[in-house]
Design a protein around this nucleic acid. Structure first.
Length: 457
RNA sequence: GUGGUUGUAGCUCAGCUGGUUAGAGCGCUGGUUUGUGGUGCCGGAAGUCGCGGGUUCGAAUCCCGUCUUCCACCCCA
C-alpha cells in the first residue's frame, strides 16, 4: 500500500473491544440517569453559530469548530473585507453554523424552544459527541463524548444533593473508588472578590486562584497583581490561601472571613445545606471536598460548581464536571429558569478505568460458539443449528467458507471464541457433535440438546 | 494560541559521526501426515524511510517548511 489514509488530528477510531467498553460505561451512566428520573433527548451535531458563540467566554469561542458556508458565499463578501484578512470580521460572514461545543448550551436552547411542551422541572440526560478545536493532549481530544444530566426549572438545592449522589452511584457501579468531587460556589468567590474590594475583577481573580495547587501561592499572587488586583486586597486573601482542614473546618474559616458579604454567606449556606443532607444519604466510594480554588471556566455558572478528580495517583484532568446556572435560558429569551447539571467525560473515565484495569472481562465477550464449515452439505445442517442456538440467545457464528480447519480454528482463536463445534459427516450421521473448548483444548461428543444446556449455563 | 517531542514494513522499534541491493521481533501468508487453534521447524510477501523543498558526487541520516504523534502551558471532559 502506497499511502495510508488517515483521520484528522484529535479524532480516533474505536476497535470492537473499545466500543464494547465505551458502551459499558455509557450503559452504566444511562441506567443511573434513568433511575434518577432523567429522560433522554438528542440535539443536532451542529447549531447556528449565534447559539454557541459568546457562551463559553473568549477562549471557548476560539475552540468552537466553525462550519464553512456552502454555495457561492464568497461572492457576497466585499473585496475590502477579504483583503483585510481579519478573521474576526470575516468568520461570521462565511460561517453561519458551528459544531456543538458542549451539551449544556444546546440544552438551554432546546428548553426555550420547547418551553410550552415541557412540564417543569425538566430532567433530561443526553449522551452525544462534542467537538473542540483544542490541541490534543493526554485525555484531551477534538471529538469526545459527554454524558450529561441536567435539571431545569427548580431552584432547590436538593438537586445538587441528588447530582452528587449520581456521581457516586455511577462511579460505584463502574468499580471506580476514591474519586474526589471538588465542590465550590460561585457566590463564595463573588463574596471573596467583594470582600477584597475587587467585585469587578471576579473573573481575573478566580482564573488566578484556580491555579493555586498547581503553581503555588507566590505565583498566584504574582498573577493576581499582574491582573490588576491590589496588594492590600492580597493581604486580605491570606486566610483563603492558607485554608485547610476538613470540609466543616474550611466552612467555618470561610464563614469568619466572609461575615460581611451577604452573597458569600449565601454561598456558604448552600454548601452547608448540601453537606447536611448528604449526611443522611452518605456517599459510598467518593470523597467530597470543599475546594475554594475551584473556579471552572464556563462562565454561565452562578451557584455551586463541581469538578471530579480521578483517584490519587492517576494523572488526568477532571473526569466530570458541572454546576448551577441561574439564567442560561435567559440568553435565549426565557428568564427565571434555573438549571443545574453534571457531565461525565466518557473518554477520560475510559482511560482511568483502563489504567486501573477495572473493565470486567464480561464486557469484551463476543461470539460464544463457532460452527466449523466442512462443506455445502454440512453447512446446510449447521445453518439450521445456528439459528436454533441464536433463538436460545447464544451468540453463534458459522464460518462462511469451507476453508481449511486450521484456518477456521485460528479464526476462533483470534476472536476469542470460547467454543467451536465440529459437525462433519460422522457427527451428523450419529447426531453427536464434537464440542471443543478452546480455552482448555478438550473435546467432547454431545447431542444438540446436551450442547444447548451446556452452553446456556 | 505558546513551548517541546515524534514520524523507518500491518504493529513495536534498530539503523553510529551522510556512502554499496534499508534490518529485527511480532503479525500476515504458505508448507510441516489435507478433521483442529494457541507452544515447534522451514519458506514467502510486504517499506516512494510522514509529505514538500534545499545542501551534497551521494541523505532514512544535515538544513528549511508542512502535516501528524505525544507531552506541558492556556483552557477544559
Amino acid at each position: 500500500m502506497a499511502q495510508l489514509p488517515s483521520i484528522p488530528k484529535g479524532t480516533r477510531d474505536f476497535t470492537p473491544i473499545e466500543v464494547y467498553r465505551r458502551e459499558y460505561i455509557i450503559n452504566t451512566a444511562k441506567k443511573h440517569f434513568q433511575r434518577y428520573g432523567f429522560m433522554p433527548i438528542e440535539t443536532p451535531s451542529f447549531e447556528n453559530s449565534d447559539t454557541l458563540l459568546g457562551k463559553y467566554g473568549e477562549e471557548g469561542d476560539r475552540l468552537i469548530f466553525k462550519i464553512l458556508n456552502n454555495g457561492e458565499f464568497l461572492k457576497k463578501i466585499d473585496d475590502t473585507i477579504l483583503s483585510n484578512k481579519d478573521e474576526q470580521q470575516l468568520t461570521p460572514l462565511i460561517s453561519e453554523r458551528a459544531l456543538r461545543y458542549d451539551l449544556t448550551v444546546p440544552f438551554a436552547r432546546y428548553v426555550v424552544q420547547h418551553q410550552n411542551d415541557i412540564a417543569f422541572p425538566f430532567k433530561r440526560y443526553q449522551i452525544q459527541n462534542v467537538w473542540r478545536a483544542d490541541r490534543p493532549q493526554k485525555g484531551r481530544f477534538r471529538e469526545f463524548t459527554q454524558c450529561d444530566a441536567d435539571v431545569v426549572g427548580s431552584d432547590s438545592l436538593l438537586q445538587e444533593v441528588e447530582l452528587i449522589k449520581l456521581f457516586d452511584d455511577v462511579y460505584t457501579d463502574l468499580g471506580l473508588k476514591g474519586c474526589t468531587i471538588k465542590i465550590n460556589n460561585r457566590k463564595i468567590l463573588a463574596g471573596i472578590a467583594q470582600m477584597i474590594g475587587a467585585p469587578d475583577q471576579l473573573i481575573d481573580f478566580t482564573v488566578a486562584l484556580d491555579k493555586l495547587d498547581k503553581i503555588g501561592v507566590d505565583k498566584v499572587k504574582e498573577e493576581m497583581i499582574a491582573r490588576g488586583i491590589s496588594t492590600q486586597a492580597l493581604e486580605k486573601l491570606a486566610p483563603v490561601f492558607s485554608l485547610s482542614g476538613t470540609f466543616d473546618e474550611k466552612i467555618e474559616q470561610m464563614k469568619a472571613l466572609l461575615h460581611d458579604t451577604s452573597i458569600g454567606l449565601e454561598g456558604i449556606q448552600e454548601l452547608e445545606f448540601i453537606k447536611e443532607h448528604l449526611a443522611n444519604v452518605p456517599l459510598k466510594n467518593t470523597n467530597l471536598d470543599l475546594d475554594i480554588t475551584l473556579a471552572r471556566g464556563l462562565n454561565y455558572y452562578t451557584g455551586c460548581i463541581f469538578e471530579v478528580a480521578p483517584p490519587e495517583g492517576i494523572s488526568m484532568g477532571s473526569i466530570s464536571g458541572g454546576g448551577r446556572y441561574d439564567n442560561l435560558t435567559g440568553i435565549f429569551g426565557l428568564s427565571d429558569v434555573s438549571g443545574v447539571g453534571i457531565s461525565f467525560g466518557l473518554d477520560r473515565i475510559y482511560l482511568v478505568l483502563e489504567e486501573l484495569q477495572l473493565f470486567p472481562d464480561s464486557v469484551d465477550a463476543g461470539v460464544q460458539v463457532l460452527l466449523i464449515n466442512f462443506g455445502a452439505v454440512e453447512a446446510r445442517y449447521c445453518m439450521e443449528l445456528m439459528f436454533r442456538f441464536r433463538e436460545s440467545g447464544i451468540k453463534t457464528e458459522l464460518y462462511p467458507d469451507p476453508a481449511k480447519i486450521k484456518k477456521q480454528m485460528t479464526y476462533a482463536d483470534k476472536n476469542n471464541i470460547p467454543y467451536v463445534i465440529l459437525a462433519g459427516e460422522n457427527e451428523i450421521a450419529t447426531g453427536k457433535l464434537t464440542l471443543k473448548n478452546m480455552r482448555s483444548g478438550t473435546q467432547q461428543s454431545l447431542t444438540v440438546d446436551e450442547l444447548l444446556t451446556l452452553l446456556l449455563q
